[in-house]
Design a protein around this nucleic acid. Structure first.
Length: 269
DNA sequence: AAAGCACTCAACCGCCTGTTC
DNA sequence: GGAACAGGCGGTTGAGTGCTT
């Protein structure tokens, strides 16, 4: 420990921001950026801690923030995403442009949770994400790393091969990466990505419409019904896709598949 | 009209993780 | 390797506002 608290309480203002403070923060960031939040308030002449400035900027002052009521579509999206991601508000916010994690968290607790309760009284929280990346970031939340509700006895050795069409039709097969998801003993998904140099027939025997629409290979006898929990211990999932911000999308996509057996809309890679 | 209650949401808090030295 | 720092995240709080009685 021995770590200095984020805010030195002495002399620093707390509570609601005044329009003057907002203006100071906005103009400072517009002119100088925000490379160091801790130093920012001093440099900008604000009696706030860096954390407070960052929060004010990211949750309220950022120019790309969409204000106003959530649309029905946005609400539906949040409900769907929450079902698959759990309380990972920032991950949900990343998929709703212009909305902040704080805003989504608020709307969830004040509005959608109630709505969902009325609409689906039998729904429980078991459908939260149980799978985490460990490739770069490690488990994302303490909740999601809790596998207590995840059956680990009688492990099966289901093997999946999932093929995802490249989103962009102009991509050549040489631009396609191979992604392997390996579920280890702790039910952690390790994502391994590697570029495939050429159109290796081993990985991509044929790239045409019929190949890509046959996303789930039936040869592996993978049958997952709606609302059915499946055991992923010792399971290997091979996914072929193009990639950039792939990991998060893959996590979401994979969770939907694992829990429902549905192949949801392909993520935008 | 006013008191009490419910709701909303901006802001804070504490913890965790990644980075730097 | 480990301590300190910085940023990010989810949970929680509480002031302000609206609604009900």
């Amino acid at each position: 420990m021995g770590r200095a608290p984020c805010c030195e309480k002495m002399g620093l203002k707390k509570g609601p921001w005044s329009p003057e403070e907002d203006n100071i923060l906005i103009s400072y960031i517009q002119n100088n950026g925000h490379s160091n939040w801790r130093a920012l308030p001093k440099l900008a002449g604000l009696l706030r801690c860096g954390k407070s400035c960052r929060l004010r900027w990211t949750n309220y002052l950022r120019p790309d923030i969409k204000r106003g009521n959530f649309t029905k579509e946005e609400e539906d999206t949040i409900i769907k995403l929450h079902e698959n991601l759990g309380n990972r508000w920032s991950a949900i916010a990343a998929r709703l442009s212009g909305r902040t994690d704080n805003e989504i968290k608020n709307i969830w607790h004040t509005n959608l949770k109630k709505k969902l309760k009325n609409y689906q009284p039998s729904q429980n929280s078991k459908r939260h994400s149980k799978i985490n990346h460990v490739s770069n970031k490690g488990p994302t939340t303490s909740e999601s790393s809790n596998n207590s509700d995840f059956s680990t006895n009688n492990s099966t050795s289901t093997k999946l091969h999932i093929k995802i069409a490249p989103n962009s039709p102009q991509l050549s097969s040489s631009e396609i990466s191979s992604v392997t998801l390996v579920v280890d003993d702790n039910q952690m998904v390790i994502i391994k990505e590697e570029k495939i140099e050429s159109s290796s027939s081993e990985y991509f025997p044929k790239i045409d419409e019929s190949f890509w629409t046959d996303e789930l290979s039936t040869e592996n006898n993978m049958v997952v019904g709606h609302d059915q929990e499946i055991q992923v211990r010792e399971e290997n999932v091979d996914i072929f896709t193009t990639s950039s911000k792939m990991e998060e999308d893959m996590d979401f996509w994979y969770n939907v598949f694992i829990k429902t057996g549905d192949l949801p809309e392909l993520p935008e890679f």
